[in-house]
Design a protein around this nucleic acid. Structure first.
Lengths: 137, 137
DNA sequence: CAGAATCCCCGAAGATACTG
DNA sequence: CAGTATCTTCGGGGATTCTG
């Protein structure tokens, strides 16, 4: 079991630690989950409000990703028995626990962006300088 | 500009902070990037070694994701002029800067996994208990 | 060995329309 | 309002084969 690949170890235990990382990414994945979470970290919103707030999302996708977030108990769905019916989405305490992770991701992302802007011309990366004009004032 | 959506603010600045987060996720995204990075955080590997080490990846995908990682200067590709040619991949210092982020993702993922295992039966989540038998001994 | 080229398929996601 | 239903397209990614 020592060197199945020649001289180098298999790093099997190392790759084992992969799973939790992938779990997190799976939960955060999908174009709209992070926007949803970030939005709900600041306010409760109703479906249509989220739809308006998050630029580009379709009702179908919004609904789908909200459901997934709900399944993981990151987001709570509350129905108010008005007419017509009102539904409010809010972040759960568990959802709040993602704040640190999201912060770290944002931090690294900022550094990365800064690094690219700072004339690292060797990098012709795709997404960064341009893209995503965020909701005009 | 105060309440365009009724009584609630737009949270435009909030959604602005999204971009760096998405940058990070974009870079980490793809089934194989994290496995590659984690592997290279421990050793340098050659193409075929990575191919064997990372269970399930095809040469095409491995090549593609390695290229993307290279573009972002997270991974370095070194060609040795032997016959036949040898290529070694290694993590760059910049790639190393991802360690913290990956650690946080792993930490949250572990907690999430633990939480689910701990009999939170209300959650019928997809990926977690089973899946991914990691490289048998 | 280290990949590139080719073919192909299936599922994610957009557009549009409809319902309780 | 808060979604669902259907239809369709598009490209990510698998399997396989080929090359320097």
């Amino acid at each position: 079991m020592e060197h199945e690949l020649g001289v180098k170890p298999m790093s099997a235990e190392c790759l084992q630690h992969l799973k939790p990382v992938r779990d997190s990414l799976d939960i955060l994945n999908g174009k709209w989950k992070i926007p949803i979470i970030v939005a709900l970290l600041h306010h409760n919103y109703r479906f249509k409000e989220l739809h308006r707030l998050i630029d580009g999302v379709t009702p179908k996708m919004l609904s789908k990703e909200l459901k997934e977030l709900e399944l993981n108990e990151l987001v709570k769905r509350t129905v108010f028995d008005t007419t017509p019916v009102t539904v409010e989405y809010s972040i759960t305490p568990y959802g709040k626990s993602l704040e640190k992770v999201i912060f770290e991701l944002g931090k690294w992302g900022s550094e990365h962006r800064a690094r690219i802007m700072k004339g690292k011309e060797s990098i012709k990366h795709a997404r960064c300088p341009e893209k995503e004009t965020v909701l005009p004032g």
